[in-house]
Computed example of a mutant assay.
Amino acid sequence: MVRFPSEKLSNTPPVLQDMLDFNDCLASCHLDDLTCTEVDMSWTNKQDFVTRVWSKLDRVLANHGFITTYPNAFGHFQEPGISDHSPILVKISQDKKGSPMYCFFQKLKNVKHALTHFHKLHFSNISHRVQSAKNALMEGQKLKMSRTLIAARSIFLQKFLKEPISRIFWGIVLLRNLRYDFISQGAVVTPSDRQSLIREISPTEIRDALFSMDSNSSPGIDGFSAGFFKLAWQIIAKDFCKAVNQFFSSSKMSKQANSTVISLIPKKAIPTTVTDYRPISCCTVFYKTVSKVLANRL
């Protein structure tokens, strides 16, 4: 049994309902995949190329208690040998020390187990309730749309017609000249500016970058939005800042932080071609924070 479509390669794709049932079973048992060495497919039927099937049937599952007790435990896939399955060797270490970035994302992973259980208890059928609220909102918007558009058009025309055309023209000319002067002179970086750019990242900068994000923006692959980090800032601030500073000191970002989901958002009600979709990249909040810190420095 596989959890995701990407875990099987064959002429027949995996059954969606089977994957949903399997994932629901793991969630109800509070089990999740233990971190393993990267092996895309751990089983094959070893038939000829046309009928060959590759699948990730072998996995290591662990509960919250095991992950909390052994945060550095991981599974190592070995060569299948004469078998059609790849054996897994689980390595356990009681040393809870690790890089700040690793520790931070391990704690996020542990929190996700508790949140999944909480969600099932208190927010079942949330999609149906959201759709009902959305339908009610759309009906209310339809009633007010015509009046709002007429009023906005009237206000715009009144302000535009009162403004002398010459003033608008010379305003455009002035903006063009200012842009030309800026480009011709160029930006000058002083020694103090250089020192400011390379100084150590402060917790205030990290907090300002995080809190400048929209709380309801799309979450990354870990499922945590900026709103979660803001609400839990008093708890996670120390670990989060250590993880961010680790990136700036080592110039390396872990796989958990750097993973991105590319989603296709339909532009119309019934999309029929690829151009009818708008792709967006759902990065982790950690990745966005690092980007904003860099942008604010520049």
Rank of each mutant, 00 (worst) to 15 (best):
M41F: 15
M41K: 15
S42P: 04
W43Y: 02
W43M: 01
T44I: 03
D48Q: 10
D48K: 09
F49A: 14
F49C: 09
V50G: 04
K56M: 02
K56Q: 06
L57G: 03
L57R: 10
D58T: 13
D58Y: 13
R59P: 01
L61Y: 11
A62S: 10
N63E: 08
H64Q: 15
I67Y: 01
I67Q: 07
T68F: 06
T69E: 12
P71C: 01
N72L: 04
N72A: 11
N72W: 03
F74V: 00
G75Q: 05
F77W: 08
F77M: 07
F77C: 05
P80G: 01
I82L: 10
I82W: 08
S83L: 12
S83E: 08
D84R: 03
D84M: 00
D84L: 01
H85C: 05
S86P: 00
S86E: 02
P87A: 03
P87C: 04
P87K: 09
I88K: 03
I88R: 03
L89D: 05
V90C: 07
V90A: 06
I92S: 02
I92K: 02
S93Y: 02
S93G: 03
D95S: 11
K97T: 13
P100C: 07
Y102K: 15
F105T: 07
Q106G: 01
L108F: 08
L108I: 14
L115E: 05
L115W: 02
H117M: 06
F118I: 09
H119Q: 10
K120F: 07
L121Q: 12
F123N: 10
F123P: 06
N125Y: 07
N125I: 03
S127P: 00
S127K: 05
S127H: 05
H128E: 12
R129M: 02
R129Y: 06
V130H: 09
S132P: 02
S132W: 09
A133K: 15
K134W: 09
N135Q: 15
N135D: 14
A136R: 13
L137N: 10
L137T: 13
E139T: 13
E139D: 12
G140Y: 12
G140H: 14
K142Q: 13
L143R: 14
K144A: 10
M145Q: 14
S146F: 04
S146K: 15
S146G: 05
R147E: 08
T148P: 00
L149T: 11
I150V: 15
I150H: 14
A151Y: 03
A151Q: 13
A151N: 10
A151R: 15
R153L: 03
R153D: 04
R153S: 08
I155K: 15
F156S: 12
L157A: 14
L157Q: 15
K159C: 08
F160P: 03
F160D: 14
F160C: 13
F160T: 15
K162R: 14
K162L: 11
I165D: 08
